[in-house]
Structures are given as structure tokens and as C-alpha cells.
Amino acid sequence: MSQEPAVIDVPFEPHGLPPSVAGAAATTVSVSVTDLRNLRYDWVASAIPGRLLDAPLPIHSSFYETYHETPIKAANDVPRTIADALRGQLAAQGYRIGPDHADIRIGVIRFHEDIPSAQTMNNCFYNLIPETVSVVAIAAALVEVVDASDRPVFVKYYHAAHKVTPWCSPGQPIWAPSLLSLYRTNLIAAMRDMVGQIIGDSHFQEALAKGGRP
């Protein structure tokens, strides 16, 4: 018996608009994105330790299905959502979005949720073994800024981890819709944190100023 993956949309949800940046109006930038994740089926979570999402092997069915574990995938194109988010935030800061000047190249490395194992969930569910249980959503990307001559002027790895703990209550149904909602909210928060780190980084802004003006 194979289980259909659950699907959740993971949009970008900012907390308001970022403050404008001095000199941004004279700076033109473009954003391109590459998906560097090594995931099967675009999973963003499953009820197994999230590190498995990076594993190249298929998940053995008998063990996981016995424990009612289901992969969760994103309904939307996550790397594209991140690139669109960055464009929107940069435009809000006053930058002109267009080609031929600085290009911001985003390589999305990780975007998934680390969820405790089925065993931990069972322990928590039946309140047999007191454990601290938490869900951690992780977003990570390598960001490069290249100038109009294609020379790199900036490169940095950004990552955000958003943790919710505790989330498992004795007697709570394991696959309640509220859990999917929690995963979704946590992933959205990680995406927002990472995009916020990028646009708020003064070194990143300096690189845009250096590479984004004629």
C-alpha cells in the first residue's frame, strides 16, 4: 500500500514592506534562481527525520507505512517563490528590477521540515516516554551577486531555521489537519526569515550598489 503525498502551498508571506534603501532607485538588479535541492518528489516534509529528504534511496515501505507516515510536498515551485519574493522585496526597497546590471543568483540548497520520527511521535502520542519534541523548518540558499561583466562581487550562504516546540500532545491524532497547517506555517516562517536576512544584509546591499549601477 503506497500513500499519496499530502500537498501544501508554501507562499511567501512578508511582515509588511521593508524600508526603502538610499540610492536604490539608481540601481538595477535582476534575480535568477537554481534549484540545488536533492529531493525526491519536491518533498518539503515527511513524518520521518528531515535529513532523509536528502537521501538518494527510496524509503522502504513496510516500516514507514506501518507507522502511517506520509510525504508532504509543496503545491508551488518553492525556488521560484523565493526568487519572486526577493524581487518583490527589492522593488519595495526602491530597486529597479531589470536585466543588464547586477544579477542576483540564488541557489536554493534546502527547504524542508525536520519532523521527529514515527517512534518519537508514538511515544509522545501515548505519553509513554517524556521527550522534548519539536518541528524545525529549514530554508537555505547560496546567494551570489555578479556585475554586468559577469564578475562575482558578493557570495554568501544564508540559512534560517524556524522551530516550534512542543507540538505533540498526548491523545492528539497524528495526522490531524492542524499538523499540516503547523508544518505550512513553519515553512512559511523559515522562508520569510531567510529572505529577510538577505535583503537586510548591509554587505549584500553594498554589492548591489557596486554591481547594479551603470
Binding site: R51, D54, L57, H60, T66, H159
Partner: peptide, 16 residues
């Protein structure tokens, strides 16, 4: 050298 992931996963054949 920036270490971004470092993990070991045990994929069991069957029930423990």
C-alpha cells in the same frame, strides 16, 4: 569551506 549539512540516516529494512 562552509559545512552546511552533515548527517547520517539509518534506513531500516523492516520493523525494529
Amino acid at each position: 569551506l562552509d559545512l552546511v549539512s552533515f548527517a547520517v540516516d539509518f534506513l531500516p529494512n523492516d520493523l525494529p
